[in-house]
Design a protein around this nucleic acid. Structure first.
Length: 117
RNA sequence: UGAGAUGGCCAGACAAUCGCGCUGUUGCAAUAAGUAGCAGUGAGGAAAGUCCGGGCUCCAACGGGCAAGGUGCCAGAUAACUUCUGGGAGGCGCGAGCCUACGGCUAGUGCAACAGAAAGGAUACCGCCGGAUCUAAUUCGGUAAGGGUGAAAGGGUGCGGUAAGAGCGCACCGCGCUUUUGGUAACAAAAGUGGCAUGGUAAACCCCACCUGGAGCAAGACCAAAUAGAAGAGCAGUGUGCUUGCACACAGAUACGGCCCGUAUCGUUCUUGGGUAGGUUGCUUGAGGCAGAUGGCGACAUCUGUCCCAGAUGAAUGAUUGUUCUCGACAGAACCCGGCUUAUCGGCCAUCUCACCAC
């Protein structure tokens, strides 16, 4: 089932620094996605939305919720990897529909890069 | 009907599907954690800025003074306030109403470009008046009504007065002082008196009165791996000695090395306290909401009844679809309250004012 529980979040600074050092990157549509294998047994998602890029707290929360929902609905195609989604400077110009479409493309890219074992 | 004033309220609605936090409960599991189902609940009027005030926590502290900062018409409300309510004074508006940093420059010091004679116990450019001189304009004296300069010119208006004038005198206004009356007070009114002294500026220094200990939930409290180090206790391989827990000797492990010799290093287990990562707590029942009664012009207070209404922590409210309307702004809790300020699509209600029309 398409759940999104606590375990599917990255909530440790060490995990983040590992991803930032070694991950594969791809950028599109105002978002950058970093991916690396993990040993937890399921995919995990981390978010890094800069206050510099989206100034208002309510809009930052909104973007994070959209990304989480999209991840939840597409997690069945993903292998056991850690994913970190970064914001870029031009993300504030996109609306929700554009972000949604961008995320779908990102998930497909990631799924072909890391074949599910 | 139109134009306004004040106060209050709302912040798209409904449904379906997939999801998230918390609480309760029932299964699985049962040490904890977890997991599945069901039920309940889940951001704001500003949650924002962090500008004030308080609660709470820790630290400091006998009392007093200075410094520094803040406040500044009066009375009240309040836990407290730079807030609020009522009143006074001044200003704006036809009005309903609104605005005010509103103590003191007759304590002291300072400041005011340019213009102007002169910018504050003054002064005379053009004037006005009188005198003197060879009658020419000059000079001496008086004056500040008129002109001129300036944001501002040493009370204002009028009459008398005078050579011309002048608070020089008088009346009214303004100002200061005294008294009386009303008011808790700020203040107002009246009477008397003074005789122009006292220009502006105190978000200029300053004076006066009152207030203020510091840091903040990353406060504070508790639990507590691993590693290093500290203290204590037990057990310390084999043999010998005896004072029976000590001494001596020999072994043991690891590294170097093909091996021996050799060299270097090393007891082990448990407990205790401190404490890092991490976790728990503080964490939401409160100066609480709603309704009613009573007191008060009001802010508000008291009483009764009733309700439980977010508690996250890499941080929970979202996405998709459909229907509908007025087509949805500003914007996301982070210990909690009371305010202030700023942002904001639109809509509703109550009371009041003005104008026009009708009666």
């Amino acid at each position: 089932m398409a759940k999104f529980s606590r375990a599917m979040r990255m909530n440790n600074p060490r995990d983040y620094s590992r991803v930032f050092r070694q991950a594969k990157r791809s950028s599109r549509g105002g978002l950058t996605v970093l991916t690396i294998e993990n040993s937890v047994g399921h995919p995990r998602l981390g978010l890094a939305i800069a206050k510099k890029h989206i100034k208002l707290a309510s809009r930052r929360n909104r973007l994070k919720r959209v990304i989480r929902t999209s991840f939840r609905q597409h997690q069945s195609v993903l292998a056991n990897i850690d994913i970190v989604v970064l914001s870029r400077a031009d993300v504030s110009q996109r609306d929700i529909k554009q972000i949604w479409a961008t995320l779908e493309q990102h998930w497909q890219t990631v799924a072909t890069q890391w074949q599910k074992s």
